[in-house]
Amino acid sequence: MSTLMSKLQIDKTIDARGMACPGPLMNLIGAIRQGQVGQVFEVLSSDEGSKTDIPAWLTKARHDLVEVVQDNGYTHFIVRKAR
């Protein structure tokens, strides 16, 4: 497993590996809606669409994309609920 650069404590990990587009994004949206401002979420996704969809949605919804790390066959997205 690759090393994540951010030292943020992760409040919730969403393991969406194996889910088809747009499943991982929808799971992230659900978690952020239920979460508290400032909480940090990690999404694990093997869906190629997530690489574009998660950043696009975060920009639109004005939450922070802290870090994206490519792992073996999947991607980690570290996200902070900003508002």
Binding site: P22, M26, K60, A61
Partner: peptide, 11 residues
């Protein structure tokens, strides 16, 4: 449905 959900999440 995929188009609909994509547009909906983007506001």
């Amino acid at each position: 449905a995929v188009l609909a959900v994509g547009a909906a999440v983007m506001g």
